[in-house]
Design a binder for these strands. Structure first.
Lengths: 198, 198
DNA sequence: GTGCGACTGGGACGGTTGTCCCACTTCGTC
DNA sequence: GACGAAGTGGGACAACCGTCCCAGTCGCAC
């Protein structure tokens, strides 16, 4: 019998829950499945968390927090805006391909949050964070390419997020790498035309 | 006791199931909830369908089929491409606002299909249909505006679908009409720049 | 080393789920 | 009007769910 403080157990359970959701979907993320994944007994679950709902809430919060360390563009001198955006999209695609189940889990968690009024704010926060991240990246990109957006950058950011979501969904469905890359290039092309030399 | 042939019951149950999924999510679409929504007894369910899975499969197929009658652009003389695309996006937004739960249900059904290998093809078909529809609309739009795409139209179509999905997800989360409209306009702007006068 | 609070294991609870069974009623056909 | 097939109702089943309880065990402060 290994004794683990409750705080550590919470973290371990959240990690286990994310693995279960990624692998089998949120519907299969039962207390028993999570506990088995974490190698604990059922009692430990309700010692660390009041309820499954509390675990799921923390899971969403945690996972959104982690998303911060995301796809900040890495910049190569001489690239124009289209190149930078394209590189960004392609790197995101790599990230998606490397761990598709994680992105699928994120989508499922969002949908799940949307279904209950108390959890809805978690989804809102998630998207606010995405937008903020995108905005920051777009500003860096424009500065580096020495251009300026002729549409408010928040709107370009929302466009970027919307497009990334759509791309994710589409790739998860058809797993067509070539198509996804082509579309990413087209998106970079289209977005880059919303800026002009300053 | 009203006697209804099995075929009609199947249709009625599918309709009821769609209402339940829209209102409460797929997780709540239990045999009992569906049967209650349809005003039948539990036995009628398993008289019409072998299993709940069979019902869900038929539900996805049905709902994808209906999507055909979708957002074909209505054209006003003198509009340029950007105007047509913008009008299309805004009309889709109206459609989304009018019945958000339906689009949310569609997303949930897609995710659900993605989770089992046997159902995966249903999701693929769904997206193939979206792409086909978008391609058709884009060709009409370009012809009407007397321009031609300088990116293959299938790619513009995939881009359009991705934008629409992302837009849907984002609006479902924050329900921010103004933001969605602004993004729709920006998207129309960006997409229209992928074509030029022929 | 003693005591107390933190942690554990296993079993049990009531509720819900998908599915099934069987006696029954209605309908169309002859 | 008899009859078989089609359709119905209600209750039952085992499996699973989230949660709870409780007797027990460990670690740590004193």
């Amino acid at each position: 019998m290994v004794r683990i403080p409750a705080a550590e157990r919470r973290a371990a359970l959240i990690d286990a829950a994310l693995r279960v959701v990624s692998r089998n979907g949120i519907a299969q993320a039962t207390t028993r499945a999570i506990v088995a994944e974490a190698g604990m007994s059922l009692a430990s679950f309700h010692y660390a968390f009041d309820s499954r709902d509390e675990l799921i809430d923390e899971l969403i919060t945690t996972v959104v927090e982690r998303e911060r360390e995301a796809v900040i563009p890495d910049l190569v001198p001489g690239q124009d805006l289209r190149d930078i955006l394209e590189a960004g999209f392609l790197r995101y695609l790599d990230h998606l391909r490397a761990d598709p189940e994680h992105e699928q889990a994120m989508l499922e968690l969002t949908q799940y949050a949307l279904r209950s009024p108390e959890r809805h704010p978690l989804a809102v926060r998630q998207y606010a964070q995405y937008a903020e991240l995108a905005e920051h990246s777009l500003e860096i990109a424009a500065a580096h390419a020495e251009v300026s957006w002729n549409v408010p950058v928040e709107q370009v950011a929302r466009l970027l997020v919307a497009f990334s979501d759509g791309l994710t969904l589409k790739w998860l469905v058809d797993r067509d790498d070539a198509a996804a890359e082509a579309v990413a290039r087209a998106a970079a092309d289209a977005l880059s035309r919303l800026a002009e030399a300053r």
